[in-house]
Amino acid sequence: MDQDMNYGEDYKFIPATSISSGAGMQLLPDVYCHTIQIVNIALVGEQEHFVLVDAGMPHSSDGIINIVEERFGDNAKPETIVLTHGHFDHVGAIIELVEHWDIPVYAHRLEIPYLTGRQRYPEPDSTVEGGMVAKMSPFFPNEPINLGDHVQPLPNDGTVPFMDGFNWVHTPGHTPGHVSFFRDEDGALIVGDAFVTVKQENLFDVMTQDKEISGPPRYLTTDWKAAKESVRKLSQLHPTIAVTGHGAPMVGEELTNNLNKLVREFDQIAKPDHGKYVDPDVH
């Protein structure tokens, strides 16, 4: 492993999975979604020119490499990895992938400190209501990883390297530098964790992947005012298909209706009733 790249000391395999683990779905000719245990990665593009969005769970690099080669051929590699954010379940295999493919990583500039060893995320809030996953959250890796000079900030003009037609949308709340990726041409939206389609706090729902729109995972969200605004911002884009970081994709009228409902009822659906990052005076 490169000396300038390392995971935090709390990096470890997380024994959590779902019935969707190992399953993939072709959503558009150039957008493919695949579930790694409890989180989704996306491949955007075709054949020799494609991008990996997010990097799965800890110790999932071999599986991700196999997914890429099954789709694009032996020794295929993406042009780059772009990150929605830097939580452990979205960067779990990133160092091994960067070393294997020798490719750059892009993330929002506000996320760079968490990806270069300079700053750790706030501690998960296990006191939020919702279920067993929230209670387990203090055991999740939370120390910053260090990608050194392998990670670069996304361009200021909103474009996404090697993802023609897509723009990044700053959607903070879950993390300061969280981004989603949107293509105006066909309404394709890669959400990350700005909103998800499973109650991520509830272990049964995570395991069964019972589809239900929700806000960002409660136990790792620290700014609920920003999170609410991010959902509103995404709804105004009128996406036709949404690949979320957790849960099954939503499309068409189902997506429109559920996203509009989430905007209207965000405080009831998404925001915890209590917790150390919840401000009862913010609505």
Score class of each variant (00 low, 15 high):
residue 236 Q to R: 14
residue 94 I to H: 03
residue 197 T to G: 05
residue 35 T to L: 07
residue 123 E to I: 05
residue 99 E to G: 09
residue 138 P to C: 09
residue 208 T to V: 04
residue 265 E to K: 15
residue 235 S to F: 04
residue 192 G to D: 05
residue 104 P to N: 05
residue 3 Q to Y: 10
residue 238 H to P: 01
residue 21 S to M: 07
residue 112 I to C: 08
residue 46 E to V: 13
residue 49 H to K: 08
residue 124 P to M: 09
residue 138 P to G: 06
residue 10 D to Y: 11
residue 116 T to S: 12
residue 280 P to G: 09
residue 83 L to S: 06
residue 116 T to D: 09
residue 276 K to W: 08
residue 107 A to C: 11
residue 250 M to Y: 10
residue 196 V to N: 12
residue 53 V to E: 01
residue 157 D to K: 14
residue 133 V to Y: 01
residue 112 I to Q: 03
residue 234 L to M: 14
residue 38 I to L: 06
residue 131 G to Q: 01
residue 12 K to R: 15
residue 269 I to F: 12
residue 244 T to M: 08
residue 213 I to V: 04
residue 126 S to R: 05
residue 275 G to F: 04
residue 12 K to M: 14
residue 37 Q to E: 13
residue 114 Y to R: 11
residue 280 P to Q: 05
residue 75 N to L: 13
residue 243 V to H: 02
residue 130 G to W: 01
residue 214 S to P: 01
residue 249 P to Y: 00
residue 114 Y to T: 06
residue 20 S to C: 13
residue 151 V to H: 06
residue 30 D to K: 15
residue 257 N to S: 14
residue 191 V to K: 09
residue 56 G to L: 00
residue 38 I to M: 09
residue 32 Y to N: 03
residue 271 K to T: 11
residue 272 P to E: 03
residue 156 N to P: 04
residue 264 R to L: 13
residue 83 L to W: 06
residue 42 A to P: 03
residue 208 T to G: 05
residue 273 D to K: 15
residue 121 Y to N: 10
residue 1 M to P: 11
residue 34 H to C: 11
residue 94 I to F: 04
residue 159 T to A: 13
residue 257 N to M: 13
residue 272 P to N: 08
residue 47 Q to K: 14
